Simulated assay, not measured.
Amino acid sequence: MEIIRMEDVSVSVNDGLRDKLIFSGLDLSVSKGEKILIKGRSGIGKTTVFRLILGFTRPSSGRIYFQGKPADSELFWDIRKRATHISQDSDIGEGPVMALFEEVFSYSANHGKFDHDTLDMLLTEFSLKREVLNKKFENLSGGEKQRISIIISLMTKKDIFLLDEITSDLDAALKTKVVDYFMANSEWTVLAISHDPEWEREGVRIIDFENIVSNEDSVNKVN
């Protein structure tokens, strides 16, 4: 079942002087349970695809559909209820890690989803000791921050994952472990942006972003 479709989507930004094209001509179809790796040089606009899916960026032209319906403000809100975006920026908060969990799961959308047994299982799965919960998030290593962000997202029990360079600070063994975990669930729809070869495997559809869009060198540093 197709859940996301983009048809001839273009995105431009205004730098105060003129509109600059990020990319144009994007056609993308995503089916439920599909695993997709989006590749391409930094700054070409890959992260903008995730922002389009979540409704934080609107296309300059073209159409976006969710489960066959044209996406509007109300539908984008429904998408955000089902999708979780893990950014390459892993600085998601400050203070004790456990307090960060408590804050996230105090939100009405996450009410009742926190489970200590699930937390313990995921800490073990991603090679973190429970003592990490007492540390200040800002003092963790980049790899620890990435794994905590992953665990929080998994515990929100959503089924669409938009993963932006989430394994960049992990060693090879942990990269493989994280990828294995996301690939194992056939019900999850996973779109990953990554330069890590661990994502390139059987069962993953690889999209070379440079081959499916047109863009301008003048905006190569826009994400």
Rank of each mutant, 00 (worst) to 15 (best):
M98G: 03
R80H: 07
R147Q: 13
D208Y: 09
L54C: 06
L191E: 02
K157I: 02
G203I: 00
N215K: 12
P96D: 12
S108M: 04
F56T: 15
E210G: 15
I38W: 15
G93W: 00
I160S: 01
L21W: 05
E103N: 10
L75G: 12
D169Q: 13
D208T: 00
E74D: 11
N211C: 02
A71E: 10
R18G: 04
T189G: 00
I150S: 08
I92W: 03
R51S: 08
F101E: 11
F182R: 02
K145N: 11
G25I: 07
R205A: 04
R201D: 00
K145H: 10
T156V: 06
R41L: 11
M183G: 05
E125R: 15
D208K: 10
D117I: 04
I64S: 10
D164S: 11
K177A: 10
I207M: 12
G93A: 04
R205I: 01
A99L: 14
V190N: 08
T84V: 03
E7M: 09
E34P: 06
S29M: 13
Q67G: 02
K135P: 05
I160M: 05
E216M: 13
D159C: 03
K32C: 07
P96C: 05
L100W: 07
D196N: 13
I86M: 10
M98A: 11
L163K: 03
L100M: 07
V222I: 13
R201W: 00
M6I: 10
E74H: 15
L21C: 12
E7T: 10
P197A: 02
G95S: 02
G55L: 01
V104L: 13
Y65P: 06
A184Y: 01
F114M: 09
G33N: 01
I152V: 12
E138C: 04
K157D: 11
T124Y: 03
